[in-house]
């Protein structure tokens, strides 16, 4: 009898730490309006972080879905708790969405929205969406990896039509105003000036950025962006475009504006004015 108690005590002693650990494992979860969609019907699956009372400041992972069942359409990451993306959620390979981002100061909560993705079923069947190599990090200044749990998401693609809209409302709101800045550092772009920008969008999320220096054309860009005009004497316009096509542009004035005598426009005006003056004087003499 005593030995039975000893075994029981040993078992409890061994299992207790496991139980304690399991209560502090950050969890990646999925959610959708319905677990069932009709074949060919688009539906949206959201990815959430449950911090399990820990303060989590960085997340990374791959969301895996059966590409032979689900056709991928798009990703929405507006309203994400991950305010800065190291790698914005993107389709890294067929059936795999990679994401990597941080939450400065950390997040504590049970349903922190990370991003969502839209797919449609191509075959009548059941399937599973999961996460692979998922990681979360504690906000401790050391980059300590938190224990992780993943709750898989099971879905059904049915032949029968499913009533209702399984997608988010349309996004008609522009990204929020933002302030680009320029900086330089010996370790980046060989010490040359570069541009930094980051905008937030509370709808579908930022799709991409475009930069225009001086009178040039907008070109697609990523932050940090090496400036073409290192003299910093041109206006710089940065356009943030969300996934629904809404955009917002911020303009950065030249840090070192050209003196007036170096600006071609001023000389053109002066010359034009002189020509007009000379023209009328000459015309008067002819008359």
């Amino acid at each position: 009898m005593k030995s039975k108690y000893k075994i029981l005590i040993c078992l409890v002693s061994c299992l207790l730490p496991l139980a304690a650990n399991s209560t502090h494992a950050a969890k990646f979860e999925f959610s959708a309006l319905l677990n069932t969609a009709a074949i060919g019907q688009f539906f949206e699956v959201s990815v959430f972080l449950d911090s399990e009372s820990q303060r989590i400041n960085a997340v990374q992972g791959n969301i895996i879905f059966p590409a032979d069942i689900l056709d991928f359409k798009e990703i929405h990451d507006g309203n994400s708790v991950a305010t800065l993306w190291v790698e914005q959620p993107h389709l890294a390979s067929r059936g795999s969405i990679f994401f990597s981002g941080i939450i400065p100061g950390g997040y504590v909560g049970v349903k922190g929205f990370l991003f969502s993705f839209v797919v449609k079923g191509s075959t009548v069947t059941n399937g599973l969406i999961s996460a692979k190599d998922a990681k979360a990090f504690l906000n401790d200044g050391l980059g300590t990896e938190a224990k992780i749990k993943v709750s898989d998401f099971s879905f059904t693609i049915s032949e029968a039509p499913i009533a209702g809209n399984l997608l988010s409302p349309a996004d008609t709101v522009s990204p929020e105003s933002f302030s680009p800045s320029i900086s330089n550092d010996q370790s980046v772009f060989d010490g040359k000036w570069f541009l930094i920008f980051n905008a937030q969008d509370k709808g579908t999320g930022i799709d991409h950025y475009e930069v225009k220096e001086g009178g040039g054309q907008f070109v697609e860009a990523q932050s940090p962006y090496l400036l073409k005009y290192q003299a910093l004497d041109k206006d710089i316009a940065v356009k943030a475009i969300d996934r629904a096509g809404n955009s917002r542009t911020s303009i950065l004035p030249p840090r070192y504006p050209q003196p007036w005598y170096k600006q071609n426009l001023i000389w053109i005006i002066i010359v034009l004015s002189l020509i007009i003056l000379i023209f009328f004087r000459f015309k008067k003499r002819l008359v």
Binding site: A58, Q60, I102, P104, F137, N139, G143, S187
Partner: peptide
Amino acid sequence: APPDAIDLNGDGKVTIVDFSIIAYYWTG
């Protein structure tokens, strides 16, 4: 081969761990 000052956890590469360290000290 990132510079030592940027490889915050000293593992010879910049990964999400370095960003986690930045996120802890964040001041905005």
